[in-house]
Design a protein around this nucleic acid. Sequence first.
RNA 1: GGACGCAUAGCUCAGCUGGUUAGAGCGCUGCCCUCACAUGGCAGAGGUCGAAGGUUCAAGUCCUUCUGCGUCCACCA
Length: 879
Amino acid sequence: MPELSARYNPQDVEEKRLKLWQARKPFHATAGKSAKGPFAVVIPPPNVTGVLHMGHALNNTLQDILIRYKRMQGFDAMWMPGTDHAGIATQNVVEKQIAKEGLTREALGRDKFTERLWEWKARHGDTIIDQLHKLGSSCDWDRLRFTMDEGYSEAVREVFITLHERGLIYQGSYIINWCPRCTTALADEEAEHKEASGNLWHIRYSLKDDPSRGVIVATTRPETMLGDTAVAVNPADERYVHLIGKVIILPLIGREITIIADDFVDRSFGSGAVKVTPAHDPNDFAMGRRHNLEFINIMHPNGVMNANAGQFEGLDRFEARRQIVRALDEAGMLVKIEPHMNAVRRCYRCDTVVEPYLSRQWFVKMKPLAEKALAAFHNGQLRIQPKRWEKVYENWLVDIRDWCISRQIWWGHRIPVWYDEQGNAFVARSEADAMEKAKVKHGKCVVLTQDPDVLDTWFSSWLWPFATLGWPKTGQDLKYFYPTAALFTAPEIIFFWVARMVMAGIEFMGEVPFKDVILHGTVRDAKGRKMSKSLGNAIDPLEIIGEYGADALRFSMILNSGQDIFISKEKFEIGRNFANKLWNASRFVLMGVRPGISDISHFADIDHAALDPASQWVISRYQTALVSVTEAVEQFRYSEAENTLYEFFWGTYCDWYLEMIKGRMDDINTQKAACLVLKNTLKMLHPFVPFVTEEIYSHMAGRETILTFEPWPVHEDKYAHAGAEADIGMVVAIITSIRNIRAQWNIKPNDPVECVFVGAGHALARLRLHETMIKRLVRMSKIRYEAVADGIRNSAAGVAGDVKFFIPLGDLIDIPKEKSRIMAEVAQMEKAAGAIAGRLSNEGFVSKAPAEVIEKERQRMMELKARAVDFSKALACLI
RNA sequence: GGACGCAUAGCUCAGCUGGUUAGAGCGCUGCCCUCACAUGGCAGAGGUCGAAGGUUCAAGUCCUUCUGCGUCCACCA
């Protein structure tokens, strides 16, 4: 293996690792290979239209950390990748594309348009998958699935048919959320509430018998009055009791409608009288049913008023609203306009205001499914983290409403239903099956037409954990990897996806699809806004990868992942700097170590009795870090694990340990310790920063290593020295080294030692020391000055090129620096011991605190005092 | 209208079951181009832990109320 390059270049290293991974395909998991058993994770499939954004970057980094860790633990860790066909979203994208050619989907026709969709998918569908590779995601790429691939589509049909057989799917005409732009029905979850300031228009409806009398109704959507078929009042409202049953004239239209009484009406809101539009409002729809009212649809599917709108026919709904208000005003029917805040529902795909619209759709009866999902949750079969989301999950299931699953679009799974000419529906696996059924019914062959609609995208993605494993076929993979272990996703998607997957899993597999649901935050910009293209505040992960590296992106992202993550570009510097530090520290260790040594992998291979105290100390600190990192990773607390690693590696290993062993690297045991602790730290860091760790590790091992298959380090207590002991050992190490230097350079005990150096000459050369600087060093007179001859120097000469002076600096430690560190530590310990002593003399504490707490405090104080004394002694030796 | 979350150094956040002197990164000040790393090293300034009460020997950490942000859910026209 060649040396690590002098400067860390993430692009080169990452590209190299990616090529290796692509060539060797190491991440493929086979059922039943490991004695430890399966550990499966399914990716939340990104939309095929997707382009990697920070949300994906976070989500996939989290999963990658988990799966890499589990591999290191020896599980058959399988991470299922794939994409979602994303019905409406994808159709919209392609519609926009053909619009550039002056085409519409209607003009193109269903078949041609669908062809264009598949073409688009073939060309762009793998974009996001490629990008996931760049992020370092170690998915089982051989298993890549798509929600509309053949096997998956079969699963979708099977589910539709089975649910229908079980009486859980029905067809009916109800008020649903309709997007006039997408011209399709939407599920309740797909119509998002957004606060908007609107008006409450108060309109006067006059009595037929006595036009001077009437009622005033208030509405936020005046155009719907064209479809009014009643006015309702509360039966207990004295103001209106005498009017119940009277006929009034609908303004502008002139239709005669009746005043009805219904408990639904709130007497205190508005005027206490409500216009009833059964075909355009869910409440009015219910009233319409209760009172047998007429349902008048006033709008075309695209939001344009139809013939029932009379003079307003042909107007867009909002234009109609303006004109109707004006007309009412002119007719003197408009009593007042009151500003009013209300929540308007908008299409989650195109943000168009959704219209409550009466139409015939397919629905899933959710109550029975939800009850099982709730039971599974209450039995502890499903854990949700953080816990605060549990209630959100629960409440939605408790208040669940039926799910409208048919969509009037063309991209998706065609509903497996055929109709005969009389409109009888035949639910079947194929047209042939439907024919058979029709034949049985009619006693002869009849012409059938398939339902033109497709299924909601989520009607396929709720099957993801088992459909990707081959269901409805029951193969080895399905048996082995289902149920999966954990699901990482965003809280926004609890209703759309998580809860529904639980329902489908229980319904079709008899078991929850995953044990742990971990909900992570939303990635926001520095101002807390969601990142979005339209706001122009999005930071492109690929740009960060290009500039700082995928490791840097991952590291910074996870370090910041508490709740919602506020990201600005500067934050990625932390990750970049860390990767750089890793590289350089490793390079330093490798340069000071004999060939072969760095391949060490067991603490037993070190002679601990002969080991220098600094190394004993760092091993001890390493063992502690290992325990806390492992615990944090087990609990999915990745940012905490990463933080511990950051502090251990940078603060302990680099700032203290490497400084201490500089100049003593010729000791074989020290070399071993330095290498082993570094190697194990690389292992622990690997799930977080897979590229740089694997590259360095491979150098140390002397062969290309796929680090995610190296075993996660095991805590070895016998090599962990007690904290105090190890700290003192560190002091002793420093003192020893300084004594040696004094002896070597003949410095009298009371003379201050200003500086002593470790390190080899080649680094000097690398910095291309100028003569002035060399002179300065020489003037310090504590430096020997001689020619360079050993192996290290040779390599230095190579790097140095034309540098003439080589200055071997001998052993070294910067005494004032170490002194101030130790002094600070002593001061800290003394203060801490003092504080505990104060508490121990607190009468209340002594009389009321539990004995074990008191004892623990006492012991801690004694220990701190002892350590402080030892440190002080050590200090005395230094001065 | 319901539910939840957050308020800790100038900025972004850690601080798990109450118990050492409240931490980190960035920024700032000073010194260092010292031999792995200036994507670096060392030293340092900066916090009455949103406000007010309460529980406790002990509270950033538990309870109550308030204030200010934020998120999700919701068929008051």
